[in-house]
Design a protein around this nucleic acid. Structure first.
Lengths: 159, 159
DNA sequence: TATTGTTATACTCTATAACTATA
DNA sequence: TATAGTTATAGAGTATAACAATA
């Protein structure tokens, strides 16, 4: 891996915009690979037979209160028909119920059930398990680095 | 997947060495959210009309030398027929060529073309662009944290 | 007339099973 | 017989378009 920050980017063009910019570009490339690879691994390790990734996201979203189909679709960045499909699956499994909004009868409020909460907790602990094992094997300094990195990444993704 | 974005601030300061295991579990949960959210954002921002994610991976894999269909399938963790499909798409677009292995005529060596290299470079810079902009806006300390975190994540995913 | 959600239909990417051509 | 790759077919998960109910 090319991680040595001491090495000047001589291989690049003779007049880079600035040393800071070039370093940021290199870091971005490394970081992208690290994030995409980790996410792929996490997704694979977390694979659950209980619920699909899409169903998981929906349950997590409505854990602290019901949302409409439209709100869920927007949140998951998918179209309404796709969300209807996901909700159908969750409803027939007994993990959510459809309710009416008395103030606007066009809307459908998707609410989590007790079974839904239980399956979410189960899936969540499974998803974290693989990572927790590896995190526990790190040094305290490495853990602190990851803790800080998690915060930075959250802020970057939120923008 | 949208857990409470309001991470309890108390949890960060109240992580004494005595609760090392519990801290690792909490960190794992935070880290998972950060990684999955970042990867989703990266995927969305990098979306290219030129080539699909699967095609991108294949081009990147054979950039420094041809590989067989079987090797590519194993590398991408998909079945051979799926890889045949991806290679078909790349071949008809002129981004790869199929070659024979003289030592074993059953095998098909997938080799990248000049056009394939060009489209890969283009897609790669696009994929990094969004992240590079945000990385450039960070402080030098934050960048160093991410650099170190990228290294740790790579090692964790490699195991 | 506009909006919310559903149904109908199609596309993409994946898988398994059966086939071919080599080994 | 076994292996590498392809073809045939099916199953998720997504999308757009058309529709019903409500605002």
């Amino acid at each position: 891996m090319i991680t040595s920050s001491a090495t000047p980017p001589a291989a690049r063009t003779a007049a880079p915009p600035s040393k800071r910019q070039a370093g940021a570009g290199l870091l971005a490339a490394e970081l992208r690979v690290a994030i995409m690879r980790s996410s792929r691994r996490l997704r694979a390790e977390a694979a659950s037979r209980d619920i699909s990734p899409g169903q998981y996201s929906v349950l997590a979203a409505i854990l602290h209160g019901p949302l409409t189909v439209g709100q869920l679709a927007e949140r998951e960045m998918i179209q309404a028909p796709s969300m209807t499909r996901i909700v159908n699956g969750l409803e027939s499994a007994g993990y959510v119920t459809r309710g009416e909004n008395p103030l606007d009868k066009r809307q459908v409020l998707v609410q989590i059930t007790e079974d839904g909460s239980a399956i979410l907790r189960k899936a969540r602990s499974r998803r974290t398990q693989w990572l927790a094992k590896r995190v526990a094997a790190l040094s305290p300094e490495e853990r602190e680095t990851l803790r800080e990195a998690a915060r930075i990444l959250q802020e970057m993704s939120a923008v």
